[in-house]
Simulated scan of single mutants.
Amino acid sequence: MLAFDRRLVPSIVAMAVIVIASNILVQYPVTAFGLGEILTYGAFTYPFAFLVTDLTNRWFGPAKTRLVVCVGFAIAVALSLVLADPRIAIASGAAFLSAQLIDVTLFNRLRAGTWWRAPLVSSTVGSALDTAVFFSLAFAGTDVPWVSLALGDFAVKMAMALVSLIPYAGLMNWVKPYGNALAR
């Protein structure tokens, strides 16, 4: 059994806040510049979940990061059921859990390489999985233009993954890797 580490609380809180905010904001299309058919405001907040996951993984390792993902998932889904449409909350939970867990695994496997490869590749694969699972579960069978929204969302996630490399690089030296970089 993995003992709870109180140092994980900021990551758990950040994860829950990001997911809840994203679940609320995904319900609002970006109407500026006619983007309402391809973009919601949730696309701008959710990619930061990958930054939190990657920094937590770098600092505490994959086992504790999985704990952060699972606890953040439980809190976010429970609160999202109250604060967002239940279909969105359930779709978000499924997408979040699958995407973040694949991110943890990929990041850990790539962490010994070039500094930017692990966060960029893991966020890219995680974002693709998250987008596919979330939009198909949340909006398939509705009149929401979910395919175009998914494509717009994924494009923003990719842009945000690149932008997130800046704070990741800045925090890399502050957030030292945990003991055994290859531990599972």
Rank of each mutant, 00 (worst) to 15 (best):
K157E: 06
P47M: 04
A78P: 08
V77G: 03
S122Q: 07
F107D: 03
K64I: 02
G126L: 06
A112K: 11
T142M: 12
A150I: 00
I75D: 10
A76L: 00
V19G: 02
K176V: 11
R109S: 12
P47F: 01
A112N: 10
R87F: 05
K176P: 04
I12H: 04
A112S: 15
I38Y: 02
L81H: 09
F154L: 15
F4I: 10
Q27T: 13
A169W: 04
A159L: 13
L151V: 15
A78N: 09
I24F: 10
L83N: 06
V9P: 00
L149H: 08
W116Q: 09
D85H: 04
R6H: 07
V30T: 03
L101M: 11
G126Y: 00
T124I: 13
T65A: 13
R184P: 00
L8S: 09
P29Y: 05
V104T: 06
Y46D: 08
F48D: 00
F48H: 00
L2G: 08
D103Y: 02
M160S: 12
A99T: 11
A118Q: 07
I102Q: 11
A84L: 03
A3W: 06
T53S: 14
I24E: 04
I12E: 08
S123T: 15
A95I: 04
V133R: 05
V144P: 03
